[in-house]
C-alpha cells in the first residue's frame, strides 16, 4: 500500500492491484487493511441504521393514526328502529387519511327486542368483506359473495365466515342512538 503507481508493474500484483492471495500478508495480528475495512463496515452499518430505523417508523406512521375523529357516531332516532326486523341505519363519518379528511357513508344494522336495548351489527361480512343484507324469508343476513348466512344476532348460520358479524357498543341519548368504535 502507498506504493508508487507510476513505478514498474509488479509481476505478482499486476496492473490492477494486489491479487487476493497476499491480502493478509501482514505479520501483525490485524492488518491495516482489515482494520480500515472493519471501520468502514461499522460506520456504514451505523449510518444505514441511522436512516433505516427512523425510516421504519416513517413508513409505518399513518397505520398508527386515529383515522376517525368522533368517538361516538350518531345513527338516528330510536323510533326509526323496527322491532320486527333489523333496520339498516346510515351515518356519515369523517375519516382522516394523513392530511386529507373525507366524509364517508357508512351503514349498520340495528336490532331491538324491546325498543330500549339496541344491538348494532356491522354489515360487513367477516369472511372477505362483502356487504350483507337482511333477507326476511330466511330470517338472516345473507352475504351474496360466498352464500353465507348470519343469524339475527350476528352469529354464523352457514357458510365460510370465521366469526359472527362485528358489533358496536351502543348508547341512547335524547332519543338518539349512538355507536362507538367505528
Amino acid at each position: 500500500m502507498g506504493d508508487d503507481a507510476d513505478g514498474p508493474v509488479d509481476e505478482k500484483v499486476g496492473p490492477l492491484g494486489p491479487s487476493i492471495e497476499d491480502e493478509s500478508s501482514d505479520d501483525q495480528g490485524v492488518s491495516r487493511r482489515k482494520l480500515l475495512a472493519g471501520s468502514v463496515g461499522i460506520m456504514g452499518g451505523a449510518i444505514a441504521a441511522g436512516i433505516g430505523v427512523p425510516a421504519v417508523f416513517y413508513v409505518a406512521g399513518p397505520s398508527q393514526e386515529q383515522q376517525v375523529a368522533q368517538e361516538w357516531v350518531r345513527l338516528g332516532s330510536v323510533t326509526s328502529v323496527d322491532s320486527a326486523e333489523p333496520t339498516l341505519m346510515k351515518a356519515t363519518i369523517e375519516r382522516r387519511a394523513g392530511y386529507l379528511t373525507t366524509t364517508e357513508e357508512f351503514s349498520v344494522f340495528v336490532t331491538t327486542e324491546n325498543g330500549t336495548d339496541f344491538v348494532a351489527l356491522s354489515n360487513v361480512c367477516t369472511h372477505l368483506g362483502c356487504r350483507v343484507r337482511w333477507v326476511e324469508e330466511q330470517s338472516g343476513f345473507f352475504c351474496p359473495c360466498h352464500n353465507a348466512v348470519f343469524n339475527r344476532d350476528g352469529s354464523v348460520a352457514t357458510g365460510p365466515p370465521p366469526r359472527p358479524l362485528d358489533s358496536f357498543e351502543t348508547k341512547v341519548e335524547d332519543g338518539q342512538i349512538f355507536i362507538k368504535g367505528v
Partner: peptide
C-alpha cells in the same frame, strides 16, 4: 415519494404533513 403528492391542492399539505406529523418525517 411515499407521501408527497405533486398536485397543486395537495403538494404543500403533503409536505407539511411529512414535516410536522409523520414520525421522523422532519429527519427524512
Amino acid at each position: 415519494t411515499l407521501y408527497y403528492v405533486p398536485e397543486p391542492q395537495q403538494a404543500y399539505a403533503s409536505v407539511s404533513y411529512i414535516t410536522n406529523e409523520l414520525p421522523f418525517g422532519w429527519l427524512i
